[in-house]
């Protein structure tokens, strides 16, 4: 028994040692081509199993399996503070070319809500990889058949309609709804938004506690197939592809000129070396174009949306400004 306990102890200590070790060095060579010289760490600033974690693990898997990047890639979870803990960790690796992280709109939203010291402009955008979109669902027997009917009723009697989402006010589920509703002329300060942190917003919709469910498109598919809910609109620019998905009307085609992109891509620490940025841009492009990653995209219902570092930066600036003005109007921003 003692022997086994010792062995167990040994295994755990090894795991701990590996988990705790940091790579601090970086040798960017601004003149020539840069190549990684040590294992690369990709941080998912959330727990295992979520969207960030999945994206990071899938990218790492294809990178290694297809030999796009020879060096070992490890995915590390740094959950806490809706991402803030992981971002602070990466910010501490200023200039390192071997520490990346995966991010999406919370990197803009969380700092604007005053919940993180570090924001998107502190980091080095490398490449955006995928896009996901929001969907607004109501029960199958609800009186509304499109977004305009819903928004008309919301204008007339804002007290009668509640919207549920999984994340708190000022975060994604809330902002994507507010963005579209505002473009349709709804007074966004009067929207009744309820958060269900246990992730059972769908339950609340199905049992009639609330009227509208603001969520990601992929979470609605099964229920739509089963005929329990209908999707009034999605936040994408154009119709999405895929069975069921292609039937969801966009807000734009209903005359509401607004979109919301749940983008997802990779970033480096502040002041990453220019040569390293070029290296990763090219590698992520190769990843995005690979067949293996295309399979993964279709498996998870993600859309291709590659942007290089430069494009990514200006895209983020735009997004930041939009969200900032929305939060100001809602009285939520810092």
């Amino acid at each position: 028994m003692k022997k086994y306990l010792l062995m167990l102890l040994f295994v755990f200590l090894t795991v701990l040692a590996v988990a705790c070790s940091n790579d601090e060095t970086s040798n960017g060579d601004a003149n020539g081509d840069w190549e990684p010289e040590q294992p690369i760490e990709i941080v998912a600033p959330a727990g295992a199993g979520g969207g960030w974690d999945t994206t990071a693990r899938m990218a790492a898997k294809v990178f290694s399996e297809e030999g796009i990047i020879e060096e070992d890639i490890g995915v590390v979870n740094k959950p806490g503070g809706g991402g803030a803990v992981g971002w602070a960790y990466i910010a501490g690796h200023e200039g390192s070319a071997h520490n990346l992280f995966v991010a999406s709109p919370p990197l803009i939203l969380v700092p604007l809500n005053g919940q993180s010291e570090y924001g998107y402009d502190d980091f080095t955008p490398l490449a955006n990889m995928i896009a996901d979109y929001g969907a607004f669902a109501v029960r199958e027997d609800a009186p509304w058949n499109d977004l305009n009917e819903l928004f008309e009723d919301m204008k007339e009697d804002p007290e009668s309609i509640s919207v549920v989402g999984t994340s708190s006010p000022g975060s994604m589920d809330h902002i994507q709804f507010v963005q579209i509703a505002k473009a349709a002329g709804v007074d966004v300060t009067k929207i009744k938004y309820v958060t269900d942190p246990e992730g059972v917003g769908l339950t609340q919709l199905l049992n009639g506690s609330v009227e509208v469910f603001s969520t990601g498109v992929s979470e609605t598919i099964e229920q739509v197939k089963a005929g329990t809910i209908k999707v009034l609109g999605v936040t994408a620019e154009e119709r999405l592809e895929g069975e069921v998905l292609e039937e969801f009307p966009t807000a734009i085609e209903q005359g509401i000129d607004a979109t919301f992109v749940n983008w997802r891509g990779f970033f480096g620490p502040p002041n990453m070396d220019e040569a390293a940025v070029k290296y990763y841009e090219a590698k992520f492009k190769e990843l995005s174009d690979s067949e293996e990653f295309a399979d993964i995209r279709s498996q998870y219902g993600w859309n291709e949306m590659y942007m290089d570092s430069e494009e990514y930066k200006s895209f983020l600036d735009e997004q930041n400004e939009e969200v900032q003005s929305l939060l100001d109007e809602l009285g939520l921003g810092e």
Partner: peptide
């Protein structure tokens, strides 16, 4: 039967389903 994870643990389990290409839900 609903595809709703009622806890942190079942949310991770739901992730395991999705990885294998199985979408839990009413169907």
């Amino acid at each position: 039967s609903l595809g709703i994870p009622g806890s942190g643990t079942t949310a991770v389990l739901l992730g395991a389903f999705l990885v294998l290409g199985v979408q839990p839900g009413p169907l």
